[in-house]
Amino acid sequence: MSFDRRNFFKTICVAGATLAVGNSFGAVKQDENAIEFQGVLYDSTRCLGCRACERVCATAHGLPEAKDELKAGVIRNTSESQRSVINNHITSKGEVYVKKQCMHCNEPACAAACLTQAMHKTKEGPVVWRGDKCMGCRYCMISCPFDVPKFEYHSANPKIEKCDMCYDRIKTGKIPACAEACPGDALTFGTRRELIQEARKRIFESPKDYVNQIYGEEVAGGTGWLYLSSAPFNEVGFNTKLQNSSYPELSKGFLYTVPSVFVLLPPLLLGIHEATKNRNHSNEDENE
């Protein structure tokens, strides 16, 4: 990302935004101060690797229980039948458990991608999928930087599966099933602000136990799910090369130019059309 390129797009953006009749093409709103998103803090140093979270997740969402063994160094992935997995990573700090599920981004690429608003960032924070709207185009899968949404390829009525932070439970005042079930207190549910404070406190109090980073605080514009780890994050299955700015930002420049093209191009074309009209007297009929 260098400056001149950004400026180039910005100029176009500003032109587009001023010319646009409404500002309907903006990506998902980011009014972080106004709304307090809720999220979950996962602390790998407290995780026992018991997989209780996996089991309650399966029951809570009517999915089959995972049968495969948890082996150190063997990476399992979430799938269309498993929204959350625990992995045992072999790292420079020894074996480290890490849970994996949707990150519930502040500005989710999946929701910006979705043309039916089936993927939706709720005001409470969870990013949910709504089957009555989804047309199964899988553009959310293309766009999610964490490769979270999964698709049922072998169904005539396929669903997109991904963690929804137990949105139905949150609405009734309960906390996500995994956070409730965790015997080691590795999962803490709360507002994002509280969780970041709590995470900072833990790092501050025992700096030897943690790498000095909260994964999710900044990556991809910030995520609802936050991580503390004893080993560097690139050793526990995270892509540390992801950008810190939000992903919907990447296509905003393009979307902002659309209204200005719509306003500027047709009159320009019409102008040229009028200007060239009399150039060719022998061909009066341009209506073919």
Partner: peptide, 27 residues
């Protein structure tokens, strides 16, 4: 290629306009 083609009607009749989506624009 659509998994749930019966919902293709949603973004067309204006049930759900995903206006922040490039795919919405293209479609």
């Amino acid at each position: 290629d659509l998994g749930r083609p019966w919902n293709v009607i949603n973004p067309i009749i204006g049930n759900n306009f995903g206006t922040s989506s490039v795919l919405f624009l293209v479609a």
